[in-house]
């Protein structure tokens, strides 16, 4: 474990807590892409099935359970409890265009052609593009509430910090995982324009307005 991964995991945890709290407190999921949340729930449930087979550490197990529980609870709030506030009209990204390539790529490029390994690989590929429906929705509505942009910043930072973690591990432990690294770079790249807007606007107290 290293500082980059710890801060990355905490940033990830912060992001999903911010989102769940925002929906719960405002009793509304306006501006939130339910499709992205479904993809994230799928990412964690497919990646963390190894909860039942391998024990890495208490930290690892607790965090996996939290990620699965919070992501499913967020989907429940969006699609059940506060369904009336779900913005169907702006959450229109076709997620089948993300799921199909992730499945195909996981079957073609993986470390091991076993059930759990294919699911893990699918989860890694899917996570790299899972935020697209949310970013698409923000671009369609032309703006995002500041709490949503804090969520996106924390979520984007987590994988950016993981890249530093992978550099650290390659340098210090001679460990690397090309699939996770390439997908993580793609995932972080997707946030770049958001990061720019967040730093130049939101941190100056302005609303996150995308050029319509």
């Amino acid at each position: 474990m290293n500082i980059f991964r710890i801060i990355g995991d905490l940033s990830h945890l912060l992001a999903i807590i911010i989102l769940l709290r925002k929906i719960w407190k405002t009793r509304s999921c306006a501006g939130i892409s339910g499709k992205s949340q479904i993809l994230f729930a799928l990412v964690y449930t497919t990646r963390y099935l190894d909860l039942v087979t391998t024990y890495v550490s208490l930290y690892n197990t607790v965090m996996k359970i939290i990620f699965i529980a919070v992501s499913i609870a967020t989907c429940y709030l969006i699609y059940m409890k506060f369904k009336a506030t779900y913005d169907h009209n702006h959450d229109t990204f076709r997620i089948e265009f993300l799921l199909a390539p992730a499945v195909i790529l996981a079957l073609l490029i993986n470390h091991d052609f076993t059930f759990l390994e294919i699911l893990w690989t699918f989860s890694i590929y899917l996570e790299s593009v899972a935020i697209l429906p949310q970013l698409f929705m923000v671009s369609k509505t032309g703006e995002a509430e500041s709490i949503t942009s804090h969520y996106l910043f924390a979520l984007g930072s987590y994988r950016a910090l993981y890249i530093l973690n992978w550099i650290y591990r390659y340098h210090n432990e001679e460990i690397y995982d090309l699939i996770a690294i390439v997908a993580g770079i793609v995932q972080t790249a997707l946030y770049c324009d958001f990061f720019y807007l967040y730093i130049t606007k939101v941190l100056r107290g302005k609303k996150l307005q995308l050029p319509a």
Partner: peptide, 10 residues
Amino acid sequence: IEKSSTHDEL
């Protein structure tokens, strides 16, 4: 693809 670690990351 080769890899040199088990999946010990989140």
